[in-house]
Simulated scan of single mutants.
Amino acid sequence: MGRSGTGSRELTVVLEGYSYLECPRWHDGRLWVSDFYTERVVATDGRGRAEVMAEVPAQPSGLGFLPDGRALIVSMRDHRILVRDADGGLTDHADLSAAVPAVLNDMVVDEHGGAYVGNFGFDLMGGAPMRTTTLTRVAPDGTVTEAAGGLAFPNGMVILPGGVLVVAETFAARLTAFDIAPDGGLSGRREWARFGDAPATTDVGEAVGQLAVAPDGICADAEGAIWVADALHGRVLRVREGGEVVEEIPTGTGVYACMLGGDDGRTLFLCTAPSFAEHERRPVREARLLATRVDVPHAGRP
């Protein structure tokens, strides 16, 4: 991993008093974000106002939008994808129970309404041994297929202009790329960026100590770079293909997801909390949504 520049930018508080914010998405002039342990999806105008958009008792996570503007919402613990209609009602879009071994995680939705969904692969919060898992594709009609396997905790995802899917593999310290076929299938698997060696252990505690970067939520900009939330080291990194880190923004607290948005696409929103452990986050309301201004605007999906 190369590094050509580090620095800091002014961080402002957009929202506070939440449990654990994840999967931010800029849509129609507002940022949507999931709050795991209040089991709500909220949307904010970026100026302090927030509206509850959905209540998801089985814990919301990944978010995306169909071509007609309806929201898709990951319901983590019951392995479903929900669709929110214009009136706010929720119905089932897909059931992934037969396709995944663990709770669902992040999601990215393509321009046609096809969704790529990750899962933990093992009981992270329960201390189970790490194991690799799959990436699932949900077609626009709700059909579920396996898109890729052997991924080490697939987490944040982006679709770059030109049809390249990039997946953050948190416990492999890398971003992995695939070419997206017209039918939504994935091919051409390759390393997009590496941040160091993958941990030589299946023990989560040991792995955490070995990761130079733990890539979590990601988003892309108009120069083809990707912003990466480093879940273990309180920073976001702007990375070019090949692994060069061209900017680092320290957050002073844990940061687990990021999204470019705002009217000009140059506001970088950051989902922060003191830690990621469920038993620490569930009973308190210490999560905050932060923002900072950057130079290059958003591109790609989400």
Rank of each mutant, 00 (worst) to 15 (best):
L165S: 03
D263V: 13
H298D: 12
G29C: 13
G300N: 04
M107A: 10
A198Y: 04
A173L: 07
A173W: 03
V167S: 03
D68L: 02
A71M: 15
E280Y: 09
G205A: 10
Q210T: 08
A152Q: 02
L232S: 11
G5R: 15
G163S: 08
T12G: 12
G64A: 04
A139N: 03
L151Q: 03
D28L: 15
V41P: 05
E39G: 07
R194I: 13
A229L: 10
T201M: 07
T136I: 14
D87W: 09
G150R: 05
V103H: 08
R9F: 00
G2I: 13
A54W: 02
T292L: 11
C271Y: 05
R84Y: 08
E223M: 10
E191P: 03
A220Y: 00
T136H: 01
E280D: 14
P140N: 01
A98K: 07
C258P: 11
F65V: 12
T132G: 06
W32I: 00
G62M: 01
D78T: 06
V158I: 09
A220L: 06
V213S: 01
I73L: 14
W227T: 06
P60I: 03
G254D: 04
P67S: 09
G209D: 12
R240C: 12
P302C: 15
E16C: 02
Y18K: 09
M1E: 08
E280K: 11
